[in-house]
Amino acid sequence: MPILYQDADLVVVNKPSGLLVHRSPIDRHETRFALQLVRDQIGQRVYPVHRLDKPTSGVLIFALSPAIARALTEQFTAHQIEKTYLAVVRGFAPESGIIDHPLVEEPDKMMPGRKAPTEAQSALSHYRCLAQAELAVCIEKYPVSRFSLVEVQPKTGRRHQIRRHLKHINHPIIGDAKHGRGRYNRYFKEQLATDRLLLAATRVCFQHPVTGQALSIQAPLDCCMTQLLQRLGWQAWADHFNQISSPPF
């Protein structure tokens, strides 16, 4: 697995789409997990401090000791870690905005004893639209279909927050089987060879728990997302997120 950063205290990797962070009763059939793969790769035990959904790719942090794991978890809990995601969504998204929409917890159906709370929890996401594109194809009821490349910074960490928030503003993420639009997902799979959730954690910024150094770690996009951005006419953004050029503002 590509290592983005490593020192004596932590390791940061670029998790591929389709890989669970650790063993879960949700996917009992899975035998490969990021935690075990990274442990075997670097030859020492690692401790998860946050997670990415199975279909989401990108920056994933592991601590190399329980003490570092606690320190990083405290930063996450205090919202001191800045996370940036990239998504391809249906429709022309607004130039920028803030989604302040509380979310009721989505319990795992296979987790016994877990119930959703009676009240929604606060959830806040900031976003901006980087690019837009049209395809001359009727996917639902219009003769052309519109898409946007959106950058999102969640300020809280609710389960499936970005996916649910973008659905809330009527711009669901392409490839989202639960919160997206089936016809769009099928079109991208059958016509554009894109069979994954088009959501990637592209950057994480935080303070090193030992040295105090400000770290900003970026993950390049995988081949699937890179090629999709190119096909939609967003080559400059594909280059930028793969660290080839400056932002094409």
Rank of each mutant, 00 (worst) to 15 (best):
E105C: 07
G18Y: 14
A93I: 10
I99H: 07
G91Q: 01
Q218N: 11
G212R: 05
P143K: 04
T84F: 13
F92Y: 14
V21Q: 08
A201M: 08
A131K: 14
L10H: 02
Q132E: 10
V144E: 09
V152Q: 00
R39F: 01
V49R: 06
L35N: 02
K167L: 07
Y142W: 12
Q121I: 14
A69M: 09
L4K: 02
Q161V: 11
N170P: 01
G157P: 03
S122A: 15
R114W: 07
H168N: 03
G212V: 06
F147Q: 02
T194G: 07
P248K: 07
P102V: 12
H79S: 10
R23K: 14
T202H: 00
V104N: 12
E105Q: 15
R39P: 01
G91C: 15
E106I: 13
T56C: 11
W234L: 03
I3T: 14
L20H: 07
S246T: 09
I42G: 11
I169K: 07
R23Y: 06
C205K: 10
P102Y: 10
R146F: 03
P25L: 12
Q121D: 11
F188R: 04
V46Y: 06
A133W: 06
H171L: 04
H208T: 07
H126K: 15
I173N: 04
V59W: 04
V49P: 11
V88K: 01
L103Y: 02
H168I: 01
D27G: 07
V11R: 04
T226G: 10
Q218S: 13
R90H: 15
M110G: 00
I174R: 01
D7C: 00
A78H: 08
S24V: 00
S148A: 06
H29S: 12
G233Y: 14
V12E: 05
